[in-house]
Design a protein around this nucleic acid. Structure first.
Ligand SMILES: [Mn+2]
Ligand SMILES: [Mn+2]
Ligand SMILES: [Zn+2]
Ligand SMILES: [Zn+2]
Lengths: 147, 147
DNA sequence: TTGTCAATCTGCAAAGAGTGCGAACTAACA
DNA sequence: TGTTAGTTCGCACTCTTTGCAGATTGACAA
């Protein structure tokens, strides 16, 4: 995702207004690596700008996504995640706490794939799922506590 | 997924009853390759057994899933798909019509993956998306019709 | 065959995640 | 400072899935 300053230019150049709500969200998403949900972002935004609406958060997020500044990530659990990292990358999700992290994969061009005949493929995404280090250690300590 | 006859045994062995509704769903899912949604299955089931409830379809499907007889597939578009194919495989979804097909991938063990440190990985799923042959040709014919 | 009882079925309410809409508001530019 | 197209916000509503509870019925034993 571009910087808030660059986005300001881009928005104006496209006939879109740069409102305080949008500026706030530009700032909250820029460099954000946690892959937040709209609700999570709404909570952060509300702390800084009481009264901002969830509707506006969704609006701005989907606007940014349709401009290619944001990727929508579906980790198959509840809400969509928003990702300002537009590099070619994949994700791993903790099935316990929902944490999402970036995963970079090389060599996917050498995979032997069977079943795509007839399809014009536009995208391939790999989703790893498992247990993050925090959740793993919590499980361990609970087990010890029980004896 | 096991055959309807085998499932009948398994269910009884686990203290679960074998009702007409369940038998019908066993039959509808066995060997089913279309990755139907609960609603789609409900429609098929209703044709053969008027009065069956959507609630029961969901119930039976999630029961089968928790027994490992069915896989739940999330193609990131609306409803969950149910898959009786428990082989190690992946999927491709048509972004136009929603069709889902099986994809077999070999060589994934040789991928160079960066970013999984600290995670205990339990699963990795690859989702391809693109346009199926039917939707591609429809686009072509519409384009020709327009000149 | 009949009785018993836990498991099941169904309908309906409700939750979670978004989206459509329109009245009130405001950034951008003249 | 005025004009106006673009925004914001609240609310109703859709869609998918789950919770609940009363009515029903398989499964097993007598
Ligand atoms: Mn990412
Ligand atoms: Mn499949
Ligand atoms: Zn975790
Ligand atoms: Zn298609």
């Amino acid at each position: 995702m571009k910087s808030p300053a660059e986005l300001t230019e881009t928005f104006r150049a496209n006939g879109l207004k740069v409102t305080p709500q949008r500026q706030l969200l530009f700032g909250l998403m820029h460099g954000n690596t946690v892959h937040p949900t709209a609700e999570a972002l709404f909570a952060e935004a509300s702390a800084r700008m009481p009264g901002i609406s969830l509707r506006t958060v969704y609006q701005t997020l989907t606007d940014l996504a349709s401009m290619g500044e944001l990727r929508l990530i579906d980790v198959g659990a509840g809400a969509t995640r928003f990702d300002p990292n537009t590099d070619d990358h994949h994700h791993v999700v903790c099935s316990s706490c929902g944490e999402v992290r970036d995963v970079y994969v090389a060599g996917s061009d050498r995979l032997k794939v069977d079943g795509l005949d007839g399809f014009r493929i536009e995208e391939a995404s790999i989703l790893f799922s498992g247990t993050c280090v925090t959740c793993a250690s919590e499980t361990v300590s609970r087990a010890s506590a029980r004896g």
